[in-house]
Amino acid sequence: MFLLEPLQYGFMQRSLLVAVIVGIICAVVGSYLMVRRMSLLGDAISHSLLPGLAIAFILGVNLYVGAFVAGVISAVLIGWIHTRSPIKEDAAMGIVFSAFFALGITLITIVQRTNKIDLNHFLFGNILGVSFLEVRDTAIIAAIVLLAVALLYKELLFYCFDPMGAQAAGLPVHWFNAGLMVLVALTVVASMKAVGVILVLALLITPAAAAYLLVPRFHQVMLVGSGIGIVSSVSGMYLSYYYNLPSGPAIVMVVSAIFFVSLLFSLSYGLLTQLKQTFKA
């Protein structure tokens, strides 16, 4: 009864479907980011979506399209600053995402003067309010992301673990870097309604990080991370429904709790496991 009661409502059915989709693609793409040590790229791109959202709203076009275009532009700018100047990649991310975020806040503030637009839904998500069209858009984005990963799994894995080796082997590493950024942008756009641009980094990185503590192989990290992402998203939805909590933060709190449990009890890296072995020695 506890599990079935929310399912009688159409909005919960749509929300749970989006939660499952987002949990899967965030863990898959986040696994690559973690291996590549580019976790902050997700944060940079997520913050950079706001001007695209505002401009899309002003022009009356699909918000997903505006957000994606802004995400890709920010990713291109980060790469351009990094390759064309002595500025390091992490500094370039900070510069671009802060500039785009400030521009987005400014544009949305201007829009709010004449239109009713809730900024909190963009920042923290509103998965309980997803429409059928938004479910469709999220599913299409997820299909594109998962298809790209399936087709380029080995090449992306080689590039993420050993970029110099991949370049020496003749792989187009610049295209792989650009492709990974596009995948991140698509994933962030798909997750925008679920957890918002502020919290999307948690769903991108934390499930993969928890899985990394639990299993040894990369494909296992993807699979276990996807499971953690699904469980976290669905559990957060139920917490949001029964306790009247904001859905995005509820999802992030659950996935963070799972990570810290993994950090404590992992058979290979768990802090309590290592402590127990120390006492035995």
Rank of each mutant, 00 (worst) to 15 (best):
F2D: 06
L4D: 09
L4K: 03
P6E: 06
Y9A: 11
G10S: 14
F11E: 06
Q13W: 07
Q13H: 03
L16Q: 03
V20W: 01
I21N: 01
G23T: 11
I25S: 02
I25E: 07
C26G: 05
C26W: 03
A27S: 13
G30K: 03
L33H: 06
M34V: 14
R36M: 02
R37C: 02
L41T: 08
L41A: 10
L49I: 14
L49W: 02
L53I: 15
L53T: 10
A56S: 15
L59F: 13
L59E: 09
G60K: 08
V61W: 12
L63A: 09
G66Y: 09
A67S: 15
F68G: 07
A70D: 06
I73T: 11
A75R: 08
G79S: 12
G79W: 05
G79C: 07
H82F: 09
T83V: 13
D90E: 14
A92R: 10
A92F: 01
M93C: 07
I95L: 14
F97G: 00
A99D: 00
F101K: 03
A102Q: 02
L103H: 01
I105Q: 06
I105M: 15
I108T: 11
V111R: 08
V111L: 14
Q112W: 07
Q112Y: 04
Q112M: 12
R113G: 15
N115Q: 13
H121A: 09
H121T: 12
I127R: 01
E134Q: 15
E134C: 01
V135I: 07
V135P: 00
V135F: 00
A139V: 09
A142Q: 05
A143L: 12
A143R: 05
A143N: 07
L146K: 10
L147N: 04
L151I: 14
L152D: 08
K154F: 05
L157Q: 10
L157S: 04
F158G: 12
Y159K: 06
Y159E: 09
C160D: 05
P163K: 10
M164F: 08
M164H: 11
Q167N: 12
Q167P: 03
A168L: 13
G170N: 08
G170M: 06
G170C: 07
V173Y: 05
W175R: 13
F176I: 03
F176W: 10
F176L: 15
V182L: 13
T187H: 10
V188Y: 00
A190M: 01
A190L: 00
M192R: 03
K193E: 04
V195T: 12
G196E: 01
L199D: 05
L201C: 01
L201S: 10
A202V: 13
A202H: 06
A210P: 09
A210I: 06
L213V: 08
V215L: 02
H219I: 08
Q220K: 07
Q220C: 01
V221L: 09
G225K: 02
S226Q: 02
S226W: 00
I228C: 11
M237G: 14
Y238C: 11
S240Q: 08
Y242S: 09
Y242E: 11
Y243Q: 10
L245A: 02
L245P: 02
P246D: 01
P249H: 07
I251K: 07
I251M: 14
V254K: 07
F260V: 10
S266C: 11
L267S: 13
L267K: 13
G270R: 04
L272G: 03
L272H: 00
T273V: 14
Q274M: 10
L275K: 12
Q277R: 15
Q277P: 01
Q277V: 00
T278K: 13
T278S: 12
F279M: 11
A281T: 05
